[in-house]
Simulated scan of single mutants.
Amino acid sequence: MKKIGMLGGMSWESSLEYYRMMNEEVKTILGGTHSANCLLYSFDFQQIERLQHEGKWDELTRIMVEEAMNLKKAGANLIVICTNTMHLVAPSIEAATSLPVLHIADVTGHAIKQENLKKVALLGTRFTMESSFYRDLLKERYEIELMIPNEEDRQCIHDIIYDELIFGILTEASRLAYTRIIESLQADGAEGVILGCTEIPLLIQQQHVSIPLFDTTYLHATAAVRKALEQ
């Protein structure tokens, strides 16, 4: 098994899920007492969140690359960024470390393609929804069209993530807000929805809506294990 280098702590609530899912996937595949061969660097999310909202992406890139290099020095064979938003700097990490970065949008696109869907909606932070990395990758590699919510709904989704979900706060009011937004996107033609923030699956699961959900945390974590087990 290759050693997985995890960049986590963004937030630790979802990094906890990554660690659990990776170990469960290893156990499912290999059985016995096998568990994941991994390294986790966990950021102080206060610093990351502040730099995100200040728009200091050059500084974020520097910090992320530095810790990815430390994972490489510690023996990591591949890098997993345990959050959607910071895949904005994935190309810089891959270039600096010369290690493969398992891209969360790539594994998500593969899952959507397997379901033969052509048009999906994306929920996530404003940084994720309003950037092009998901849209471009899904279009170029999988011929999938991406939709995002309107301005007001994007702000609602973003605020719930940063005010509640990263603190582990799950409320019925927020769940209803998300399901309303998903139903609106479905009415506009969305055939499925990407839960493009690794905290969103803590709040919304498949039983809450009538169209397919793509849990990026689960897809990314289990794909990392399969990648690590490749010969």
Rank of each mutant, 00 (worst) to 15 (best):
M1G: 13
M1D: 12
K3N: 10
I4F: 10
G5N: 06
L7N: 11
G8Y: 13
M10A: 03
W12M: 09
W12A: 08
S14H: 02
S14T: 13
S15D: 03
S15G: 10
S15F: 05
R20C: 06
M21P: 00
N23Y: 09
E24K: 14
V26N: 05
T28D: 15
T28Y: 15
I29N: 05
I29D: 03
G31V: 07
G32Q: 12
H34G: 00
H34C: 08
C38Q: 15
C38A: 14
Y41N: 05
Y41M: 04
F43H: 10
D44Q: 14
L51D: 12
L51M: 14
H53D: 07
E54T: 14
G55A: 05
W57T: 03
W57D: 03
E59W: 07
T61C: 15
T61I: 11
V65Q: 05
E67G: 03
A68H: 09
A68I: 05
M69C: 06
N70T: 03
N70M: 02
K72L: 02
K72S: 12
K73D: 12
A74P: 06
G75K: 04
G75L: 07
A76G: 08
I79C: 03
V80G: 14
C82M: 07
C82R: 07
T83W: 02
M86H: 10
H87D: 01
H87M: 01
H87R: 00
L88P: 12
L88S: 10
V89G: 06
A90G: 01
A95T: 12
A95Q: 15
T97H: 05
S98C: 10
V101I: 05
V101D: 10
L102K: 06
T108P: 03
G109S: 06
G109V: 02
H110R: 15
H110V: 15
A111C: 02
K113H: 15
Q114S: 12
K119P: 00
V120D: 01
G124P: 03
R126D: 09
F127A: 11
E130Y: 02
F133W: 08
R135A: 15
L137S: 05
L138Q: 00
K139S: 13
K139Q: 13
K139T: 09
K139M: 11
E143M: 11
I144E: 08
L146A: 02
L146D: 06
I148E: 05
P149K: 00
E151P: 01
Q155E: 14
Q155L: 12
C156F: 02
H158I: 02
I160G: 01
I161E: 00
Y162Q: 12
D163W: 04
E164T: 08
I166N: 06
I166V: 10
L170W: 00
E172S: 08
S174G: 07
R175D: 05
L176Q: 15
T179R: 06
R180I: 04
I181S: 06
S184F: 01
Q186T: 13
Q186V: 04
D188N: 13
G189E: 12
G189F: 10
G189C: 06
A190K: 07
A190E: 04
E191G: 07
G192T: 11
L195Q: 08
P201E: 04
L202G: 04
Q206P: 01
L219R: 04
H220T: 07
A221W: 04
R226N: 11
A228S: 15
A228G: 11
